[in-house]
Computed example of a mutant assay.
Amino acid sequence: MTSESGRAESSTRQPQAAPLRDQAYVALRDKLVMLEIPPGAPIHEEEITSSLGLGRTPVRQALRRLEVERLVAIHPRRGTFAADVHITDLSQIAEIRLHLESQAAGWAAQRATQEERDTLRSLLVEMQQAESDDPAKLMELDSGMHRTIYQCAHNAYLEGSLTELHNLMARIWYLFAPRLPQAARLMEDHAPLVEAIIAGDRDKAQHLAARHVSDFESAVKAVL
């Protein structure tokens, strides 16, 4: 009876909540990436802890992590600020992403489980049904698609590196999205890429991923 009871309790146990530092990190990361906290703006711990309902320790841990990821700048005796967005960083970020995104897409085509391929299909349908005149929603879906592809590559180090690079790129997107006439078309590029991954076509997935990165860089440079 004890064994049966234990199994019953285990099957009904609710998933554990993410650690507080991770909750603080995700909330702050999204605000920084989506420019809800503008580049260069001061970040006050008191306001953050109050708005998130968290203590100082997890918020400080999150800020230190975000500093490592170049999303915040911490200056002793001056304070903490949202990192500036430097358009000169675009080429360097794209140069790295060009190779890593291609590798991730190729591995995803080879390694993704059927469940992961189904998830990619669902995300693609959601993206295709989204309103093309809502840049924020498009970028939210784009980020979800990229992060899922990174997970499908089944390499934690590659996933971590690409996630950080994508966050930096996304800030540039939010800064220039209103001036990008082909923003919706860039999102449409995901369809053949996702189809290639689902079909297990490594070479095609790698080619399309690299082209997607290159097209984004060209689109931003065209409006500078």
Score class of each variant (00 low, 15 high):
residue 2 T to Q: 12
residue 3 S to M: 11
residue 4 E to D: 14
residue 7 R to V: 06
residue 8 A to D: 10
residue 18 A to E: 13
residue 18 A to G: 02
residue 24 A to H: 03
residue 29 R to N: 10
residue 30 D to R: 12
residue 33 V to Q: 02
residue 33 V to T: 15
residue 34 M to W: 13
residue 39 P to D: 09
residue 40 G to R: 08
residue 43 I to A: 08
residue 46 E to P: 07
residue 47 E to R: 15
residue 49 T to S: 14
residue 53 G to I: 05
residue 54 L to Y: 03
residue 57 T to A: 13
residue 57 T to P: 05
residue 60 R to C: 08
residue 60 R to D: 12
residue 65 R to C: 09
residue 66 L to V: 13
residue 66 L to W: 04
residue 67 E to Q: 14
residue 71 L to M: 14
residue 73 A to M: 12
residue 78 R to F: 08
residue 79 G to N: 10
residue 80 T to V: 14
residue 80 T to P: 01
residue 81 F to E: 01
residue 83 A to Y: 02
residue 86 H to P: 00
residue 87 I to H: 09
residue 87 I to P: 00
residue 88 T to M: 04
residue 88 T to W: 08
residue 89 D to K: 01
residue 92 Q to T: 15
residue 93 I to L: 14
residue 93 I to V: 13
residue 95 E to D: 11
residue 101 E to H: 11
residue 104 A to L: 00
residue 109 A to S: 09
residue 111 R to I: 01
residue 111 R to G: 00
residue 113 T to C: 03
residue 114 Q to P: 02
residue 119 T to Q: 14
residue 125 V to L: 12
residue 126 E to G: 03
residue 128 Q to F: 07
residue 128 Q to V: 02
residue 132 S to D: 08
residue 142 D to Y: 09
residue 144 G to P: 01
residue 144 G to K: 04
residue 145 M to S: 06
residue 146 H to G: 05
residue 147 R to D: 10
residue 148 T to A: 07
residue 148 T to S: 10
residue 149 I to N: 01
residue 152 C to G: 01
residue 152 C to R: 02
residue 153 A to S: 14
residue 155 N to Y: 03
residue 157 Y to V: 06
residue 159 E to D: 11
residue 162 L to F: 01
residue 162 L to E: 10
residue 167 N to G: 15
residue 169 M to G: 13
residue 172 I to P: 05
residue 175 L to A: 07
residue 177 A to G: 07
residue 183 A to G: 06
residue 187 M to S: 13
residue 189 D to I: 07
residue 193 L to A: 08
residue 194 V to I: 15
residue 199 A to M: 01
residue 203 D to N: 11
residue 204 K to R: 15
residue 207 H to G: 06
residue 208 L to S: 01
residue 211 R to M: 13
residue 211 R to Q: 12
residue 216 F to P: 00
residue 217 E to V: 03
residue 218 S to P: 00
residue 223 V to P: 03
